[in-house]
Design a protein around this nucleic acid. Structure first.
Length: 549
RNA sequence: GGGCGCGUAGCUCAACGGCAGAGCAGCGGCCUUUUAAGCCGUUGGUUGAGAGUUCGAAUCUCUCCGCGCUCACCA
């Protein structure tokens, strides 16, 4: 069954049918150029498969094992600019991906891109000869990896370029990359034409997005820098980085539905963690005074522009500190990170100028809600009273019925107050019943020492003075269990081992949690969590039906 | 899960009830300093899938799939 490669140049397959013995030991380019495989190739891919066949016939290995390079593109340009002044010749070897080709008869130009940037290649008949120039023009495509050796020079138009004396194919691309073309306008701005823009494709095929959009690579370099800066800051402040279980027999530390899995040998259900909190606080019992973890949390909830089922979380716990000290550390840590990654503490998010320089505004939650909704939550001590007050004041902006007082307060917060918090603001003192792991304010059992930092209208982090009274903690677990049962939600699990740990004595401490993806969104001015995740969760893709049998 | 919107060539997009098109990419040719190179020629489509309405559907209707925005859930 000859796969009818609609031969654009009338290439003859006859000598290459499966019966023909392979003529090269290792050099079977692309497993007989795709025959016998399951993949359905497009017409453009079939043309490239033909090139693979032709290269094989000419003894050119399309996927050689070794490559060589002496300089990155950026190093080559920098070194040339120095050598140029001394009138010194600079010979070197580059390696990278072909991004543009401009053959023009007896010379050819191309642009190559490597990890450090782009650089132009110049091929001329005089150096490489007719046959090799022809090979480059006909057999090489945009997207192929190439190794090129030659002498650096500057073209008539002033671009620093490699004058290629020899070159080698490093890896053939079978599928064409979206061939983005960068146009440099008079004023120096670069316009990209026909780049890969479809957000679904960019997320699903991140490899292609990364390959053609340098700014995507930059986002993930900066994301790495953010995490590096957070680590450096916490290490510097004497925190110990630890790793706690991702597979947990009991989940806890947040209000979220977990992913469920099963361990065959232990014959027991396991959960993927929804937070690190209960394990990190066990470490405080063990006299580790300052601990932090950066890792993955998993929550079996809806997906949105700010929610991915797995996300990167930072939590730290600090013995002998309270939420006010944590507040100070928070604003220092975030502004430090911005400074390290962006070189400034003044950032732009959705066209808002945001200044992360400490100190950040502090606003009591009750006061903030009063100012934005006109309702003083302290005047209504039960859910019913508060609900009635809200109904009188804002009949058109009402939550569902049957919420606890804490959830009504939470509604007021997100409906009225949250959108107004553009500049970094610490919102503090939260209702007890939505904060089961936080400690009450002395003399105010209804309110806990908790804060959240808001910036650009969304929540960045969540922290509190941690509850360390084992008897009070058990009581809260029981209350939570009841609330969840009332909400017809899954019952909040009681963590007996955590209570046992706490009964040995836990130092008073301040705890902190922050979504690192959200921090990345904020600092990089990205408006969807998908833009800061290399491989965001997407619905399973239906691949086209393979080979009808 | 609800509401609204989108899905057309490898990529970016037109056509919006009457022959499915353009630019780039590709293919053939010309071109020894180009850079969105240029010029001449040319290939490429089950219009996301399926059903319906109609003389006729990319276009209108329904179902399904995927994505986006939004609400809910959730920090």
């Amino acid at each position: 069954m000859p796969r009818a490669c609609d031969s654009a140049r009338g290439f003859d397959f006859a000598p290459l049918l499966p019966s023909a013995p392979p003529s090269y030991g290792e050099g079977i380019a692309g497993v007989e150029a795709g025959r016998g495989l399951m993949t359905e190739f497009t017409s453009l891919e079939k043309i490239r498969l033909q090139k693979l066949e032709e290269l094989r016939l000419e003894g050119v290995e399309a996927y050689p094992t070794r490559a060589r390079r002496t300089h990155t593109s950026a190093q080559a340009i920098a070194e040339f600019e120095a050598a140029e002044k001394e009138d010194r010749e600079l010979k070197l070897t580059l390696a990278g991906r072909i991004r543009a080709m401009r053959p023009m008869g007896k010379v050819s130009f191309a642009h190559m891109e490597d990890g450090a940037g782009k650089i132009q290649l110049f091929f001329r008949l005089n150096e490489v000869g007719r046959e090799r120039l022809e090979l480059f023009n006909r057999m090489f495509d945009i997207g192929d990896f190439i190794q090129a050796e030659g002498v650096m020079f500057r073209t008539k138009t002033g671009e620093v370029t490699l004058h290629v004396h020899d070159f080698k194919l490093l890896a053939k691309a079978v599928s064409p990359l979206p061939a983005a073309k960068d146009e440099t306008l008079e004023d120096g701005t670069v316009v990209r034409h026909a780049a890969l823009e479809d957000p679904e494709l960019r997320a699903r095929q991140r490899y292609a997005d990364l390959a053609v959009n340098p700014e995507t690579r930059e986002v993930f370099r900066k994301r790495a820098a953010i995490i590096r800066a957070l680590r450096a800051f916490l290490d510097e402040h004497g925190f110990l980085e630890v790793e706690t279980p991702i597979l947990q027999p009991i989940y806890g530390g947040a209000a979220a539905r977990p992913f469920l899995t099963y361990h065959n040998e232990l014959e027991q259900q396991m959960y993927l963690r929804i937070s690190f909190e209960l394990y990190l606080k066990r470490l405080l019992v063990g006299n580790l005074e300052k601990v932090y973890e950066i890792g993955r949390d998993f929550r079996n909830e809806g997906v949105s522009f700010k929610h991915n089922p797995e996300f990167t979380q930072l939590e730290f716990y600090w013995a002998y500190a309270d939420y006010l000290q944590v507040m100070e550390l928070t604003e220092q840590m975030v502004s430090y990170t911005a400074q390290q990654v962006l070189g400034t503490q003044k950032i732009t998010y959705k066209h808002n100028e945001i200044d992360l320089t400490p100190p950040w505004k502090r606003l009591e939650m009750r006061q903030g809600i009063l100012e934005t909704s006109g309702i003083d939550i302290d005047a209504y001590r039960t859910a019913d009273e508060l609900f009635q007050a809200m109904k009188e004041r804002h009949p058109n902006r009402m939550p569902d019925v049957g919420l606890t007082r804490g959830k009504l307060v939470d509604f007021l917060l997100s409906e009225f107050l949250e959108p107004t918090l553009i500049q970094p603001t610490f919102l503090y003192n939260y209702p007890r019943d939505i904060s089961p792991l936080a400690k009450s304010i002395p003399d105010d059992p209804m309110t806990v020492e908790r804060f959240e930092a808001y910036t650009a209208g969304f929540e960045l982090c969540n922290a509190f003075t941690e509850l360390n009274d084992p008897l009070d903690q058990e009581q809260r677990f029981l209350e939570m269990g009841r609330d969840y049962a009332a909400d017809d939600e899954e019952k909040h699990p009681m963590d007996e081992d955590y209570l046992r740990a706490m009964r040995y004595g836990m130092p008073p401490n301040g705890g902190f949690g922050m979504g690192v993806d959200r921090l990345a969104m904020l600092l990089l001015d990205k408006h969807s969590i998908r833009d800061v995740l290399l491989f965001p969760a997407l619905r399973n893709e239906e691949f086209a039906e393979k080979e009808k049998s």
